[in-house]
Amino acid sequence: MSQLIRPPLWIGQVIFLFALGALWQALANYGFINPILIGDPVGILLFLYNGLFTNYTLVPHLLWTLWATVSAFLIGSILGIGVGSLFVAYPGLEKFLEPIFAGLNALPRVALAPLFLLWFGLGISSKIALGASLTFFIVLSGTVAGARSVDSDHLTLSRMLGATSTQIFTQITLPGAVPTLFSSLRLGLIYALLGVVAGELLAARAGLGQALSLFAGSFQTNGVFAVLFLLALIGSCILAAMNRVEARFLRWK
């Protein structure tokens, strides 16, 4: 007997989401739920379509959030990889600074958002600072953990063959840390988005978080769900893009 051909997984996922949306719409149409409080899928999709392609009300907020997220991710990642590399190269420095960094990492950065607003203002700088602070510690931990997960036999063999400390660090330690590093980068990018949106929710001139707060305050439930759907879509695209970049960098494995 020939083996049955299974449909792609994404088809089942689309069918499930469509069925869930149809059930939601039916409950709203027949009065089982209040669309004013819960919204309805058709209204949400229309709001999202109009905001992106007709009246463009969501486009400036989307661009603002994306720019802040990318900037926060790049700043936090560069600093995290740089400091993590220093910790790996100079263990004494890590031992000296570890209590300080542990205390800073334990601080809830979202609770510190008012301080960032005070220091950097209501503009995009405070959102970038908040997102970068979340990304930094995640990438820092991933860099250190990845570098220390390198096989010790490879390091010993390299020293026996006469490799210098710089050659070992750049050609063995860093490439061996790439898988763990990419896991932290993927998570750091998501947290950069979360930090930016959290800052926008508190106070901002623009951004999806600011739009979310505005729609919630004016009881535009469909607008709230439209922004949430857009944020979920951005998060999914971020993860998919990072997975592709990771696969490209790890072809050697």
Score class of each variant (00 low, 15 high):
Arg251His: 07
Asp40Met: 03
Ala198Phe: 02
Ala216Thr: 14
Leu239Phe: 04
Gln210Val: 00
Gly188Trp: 03
Val83Leu: 09
Glu246Tyr: 07
Val110Leu: 06
Ala241Ile: 14
Ser126Tyr: 08
Asp151Cys: 07
Thr135Ile: 12
Ser213Cys: 03
Leu93Ile: 15
Leu107Asn: 05
Gly142Arg: 05
Pro7Ile: 00
Ile172Asn: 03
Leu194Asp: 00
Phe96Ser: 09
Gly121His: 10
Gly82Trp: 07
Leu201Arg: 10
Ser213Ala: 12
Ile190His: 01
Ala89Leu: 09
Gln25Lys: 06
Asn34Arg: 07
Gln210Phe: 09
Leu189Met: 12
Val42Tyr: 05
Val59Gly: 09
Pro35Thr: 04
Ala198Cys: 08
Ser165Val: 10
Gly80Leu: 08
Arg244His: 10
Thr156Glu: 11
Ser125Leu: 12
Val139Asp: 00
Gly123Met: 01
Tyr90Asp: 05
Gly80Gln: 02
Ala89Gln: 14
Gly235Phe: 09
Leu107Gly: 10
Pro8Cys: 03
Leu79Met: 10
Val139Thr: 05
Leu37Met: 13
Arg248Asp: 08
Val83Gln: 00
Pro114Cys: 08
Leu181Gly: 08
Leu155Lys: 13
Lys253Val: 13
Ser133Gln: 12
Gln220Glu: 00
Pro35Met: 02
Leu212Met: 11
Ser126Leu: 09
Val144Asp: 05
Ala22Ile: 13
Gly142Glu: 08
Ala28Asp: 01
Gly217Asp: 05
Gly82Pro: 02
Ile81Met: 09
Gly121Arg: 12
Thr164Phe: 02
